[in-house]
């Protein structure tokens, strides 16, 4: 986890943000959850988002694939704007993979069926091809021998790796991770983080909401700190952890890094 192959390939790319969020606001009823969010993510860039609970970090990434609707501002994914247009939403969801805190595997389907569902029904891939694709990604997350089992028969760490593989089967351009290790027993965190790290090394564009600061240090290009619905600070990992600019960031870090 110590080598950091981070910034080299990013600078080479011109300014062609794959995700662009402009002036985003969101309310739950009267509660203003997201305030004036602006963010650009370049291809192959990896961003870690942290902040206290209730700060809006999950809500922000859920807006990116329209699991939450925003009320003001604009979100572009790969040049397509998220609006009420169902076609656009479907298109964006095909390109954006999401991994949830509670895995959300489909318990009535086998691991293999969980993986092939998207390719077969959304991308219309023939079944045999979808099976091969699924086995390829299951090998990658080192769980191929479980293909015929049901999610309920796997451990939490295994389930989360399956969930990552399920997203990868859609060949997404961006992966969103919503606290992927917070629901896991401590001894299973590493196996999931290892999969995410190897994904990072392959150049996947990732936005990760997490409190795993070791992961942030070794993999992220930028670390973002959110509080009360705002992005308080965005910084390189080194500066973020060693010289945070804002008082609130310092306070937060002092609370989670004992």
């Amino acid at each position: 986890m110590n080598e950091s192959p981070k910034t080299e390939d990013i600078e080479a790319k011109p300014d062609n943000a794959i995700i662009k969020i402009i002036d985003l606001h969101k309310w739950f009823g009267d509660f203003h959850v997201l305030k004036d969010i602006n963010l650009e993510v370049k291809p192959q860039e990896r961003i870690v988002v942290c902040g206290p609970s209730g700060s809006g970090k999950s809500t922000m990434i859920r807006c990116i694939n329209r699991l939450e609707e925003h009320q003001r501002g604009q979100i572009f994914v790969d040049g397509v704007e998220l609006s009420n247009n169902l076609k656009n939403i479907e298109k964006i969801r095909e390109e954006v993979g999401m991994v949830f805190q509670h895995f959300n595997l489909f318990p009535h389907l086998t691991i293999l069926e969980n993986l092939t569902l998207g390719p077969i029904w959304v991308k219309k891939v023939p079944r045999r091809e979808a099976d091969e694709l699924a086995m390829y990604y299951l090998e990658k997350v080192q769980i191929a021998e479980q293909a015929k089992k049901f999610p309920g028969q796997l451990s939490g760490g295994q389930q989360q790796r399956v969930a990552i593989a399920r997203s990868l089967c859609m060949k997404p351009k961006v992966m969103l991770f919503d606290e992927p290790t917070s629901a896991l027993d401590p001894e299973m965190v590493k196996e999931v983080l290892d999969v995410m790290i190897s994904l990072a090394h392959e150049g996947m564009t990732m936005i990760v909401v997490t409190h795993e600061m070791g992961f942030a240090k070794s993999v992220a290009h930028r670390v973002m700190f959110m509080d009360e619905g705002r992005i308080v600070e965005t910084n390189t990992p080194d500066n973020f952890f060693d010289h945070p600019e804002h008082e609130r960031t310092q306070l937060f870090l002092s609370q989670i890094l004992h």
Partner: peptide, 26 residues
């Protein structure tokens, strides 16, 4: 659980696929 709908949505399944393949069987 809401997570089942969200997982289906994030894979890009439409309403009828979500109901037929994910929600109703369970």
């Amino acid at each position: 659980p809401r997570g089942q709908y969200e997982a289906a949505d994030s894979l890009g399944l439409n309403y009828f696929q979500t109901m037929r393949l994910i929600i109703l069987p369970q």
